[in-house]
Computed example of a mutant assay.
Amino acid sequence: MEDQVMSEVHIGCPPGVSGPHLSHFFFSIPSGVEQSESSIENDGAISGHQGLDWDDDGDLVLTRRNKLSNKKCGLTIQHMITSSIPSVGLQVWRAELILADFVLHRMFTSSDFEGITTIELGAGTGLVGILLARVAKSVFLTDHGEQILENCAANVCLNSAIFNSQAAVHVRELDWKNSWPPKTDFDYNSQKRFSWTISEFEEAQRASLLVAADVIYSDDLTDALFSMLEAIMSHGPDKVLYMALEKRYNFSLDDLDVVANGYSHFRSYLRDGGDNAELGSLGDWHFPPFFGKCVDLSEIPQYIRQYDRGNDVELWQIKYEKRKP
């Protein structure tokens, strides 16, 4: 039997549960953000309850709403409480919730994500992409493995009521170790549930936003990810990737110290992408074509309350420098 791992987010979930579990994640909509009445009703229905709390004696706790929040909304995510390492996409991870906070903050404070096409890489449960479907035009939730894709598709169905009326949400297979473009149903000669159509691939090429969370834990997989990113980001309009990741420390015999080698390998792909970095001015092409800038998480409010951010999670903005002919 494969070793099982457990996300910190699931601590406190019912012990001994072997099958899928439903968790409700709530977030508050700041004052001044408009929302249709139907959307408000749907949010209440999806959460399964109205966010009421009880004390240890079973009495209802009435909390006063703060000035930043006038509506509490939520989404329901089906996930496993534990999983094998190859199936970690069946769980919700801390970096995924930090990326969700970032997405919510941009949605509440700007119109940047309205009407866009976006791709989530290593979508897992699909939580972040599902939130983006509140404002985006097209969302591609991509991952690898039938079980993970089936679970992601189930979460799309569970939360479809919170999507904007024009949103098209696609759950699609994307193996980073294969080439881009991905195989289409034409290539397979038969329709597969999670295969791409040619029109979907053409739409994905026009994506302006990529998102990914907790996909850095194996050097081989990181190499495959950046190879896929270069293939995707080098075509079509300029794209930006927002990636949330958690530093994972292990004792290294080579270093005789506790180090985050996976994080160091990830950083080796990035050049400084601060505000003063000049894209389009590369002269030495042996440097990585990716520019990275770490986002200050202290500037991102924690809209989703059901997790502890900790100190080892980072959010990166990554851009790609297209090579000139």
Rank of each mutant, 00 (worst) to 15 (best):
W176P: 00
A204C: 04
C157S: 13
H170R: 12
N164Q: 14
N164H: 10
L210H: 05
L158I: 04
F194L: 05
W196A: 00
A153T: 05
Q191K: 12
E200Y: 07
N155P: 14
L174S: 07
D214A: 01
Q166F: 11
S195C: 05
P181D: 09
R206G: 05
S199T: 03
N159G: 06
V156E: 04
F163C: 04
H170C: 09
H170M: 07
T197V: 02
E202V: 03
C157R: 15
V215E: 02
N164R: 07
E202A: 07
E150R: 13
E200M: 04
N178A: 15
Q191R: 12
R206V: 02
N189A: 09
S195K: 07
L210F: 07
S160C: 11
Q191M: 06
L158F: 09
S190V: 02
Q205V: 08
T184F: 08
N151L: 13
E173L: 14
R193Y: 11
W196R: 08
I198P: 08
V171Q: 07
S199A: 07
H170D: 05
A204I: 00
S199N: 11
H170T: 06
S165E: 12
F194D: 03
V211A: 06
S199D: 15
N178G: 09
P181A: 03
F194V: 03
V215Q: 02
F201W: 08
D175G: 00
S165K: 15
P181F: 01
A207M: 10
A161P: 06
A213R: 04
I162S: 00
N151A: 11
N151H: 05
L209K: 12
K183H: 15
A212F: 10
E150A: 14
S160V: 08
S199I: 01
R172K: 15
K177F: 13
R172E: 05
S179C: 08
E202S: 06
N189T: 04
T197M: 06
D175T: 00
A213I: 01
D175S: 02
E200N: 08
Q166W: 14
W176V: 00
V171L: 03
S179R: 10
A168F: 14
A161K: 15
I198N: 09
L210W: 02
